[in-house]
């Protein structure tokens, strides 16, 4: 599982370079997220643009990643493929995370 990170102002963007986050890679994903996000900005945006498939283990790994950040940092999700969005909606995790259709949407200044 390859993750890359870029920090701008108060936001850290972490991009997932895999087309799936599933049971086979969930533990590795959680570990990599812990390492990459360590000491970063208060807001973390996870760019899922390249992810076409996620299962409940992958979803659990994203939830675990948010918990790892602690209560003073936040994890937002961007670039959700319709399939990935559906898994979040079915499990009601769409009520827990801020979901943005694209990375640009996630980085746009808040609307008035």
């Amino acid at each position: 599982m390859a993750l890359t990170s870029k920090i701008t102002d108060t936001t850290q963007i972490i991009t997932v370079h895999s087309d799936r986050i599933d049971a086979a890679m969930a533990i590795q994903f959680k570990e990599d997220m812990r390492n990459v996000a360590d000491g970063g900005a208060p807001r973390v945006v996870l760019d899922l643009t390249g992810v076409e498939f996620i299962d409940s283990s992958g979803l659990g790994a994203i939830v675990a990643s948010m918990k790892q950040l602690g209560s003073d940092r936040r994890l937002d999700l961007a670039g959700l493929h319709p399939f990935v969005e559906k898994v979040f909606r079915l499990t009601r995790m769409d009520t827990v995370f801020n979901l943005y259709p694209t990375l640009a949407d996630a980085l746009a200044p808040p609307a008035e």
């Binding site: 939830v63 675990a64 918990k67 079915l90 499990t91 009601r92 995790m93 827990v96």
Partner: peptide, 25 residues
Amino acid sequence: VPAPLGSALDELPEGGFGWFLIHEL
């Protein structure tokens, strides 16, 4: 039955969705 979401960050479930999704779909 889906795992309850709880009310705090550390209560969020990291699993327990499998059979719910299968039944649902």
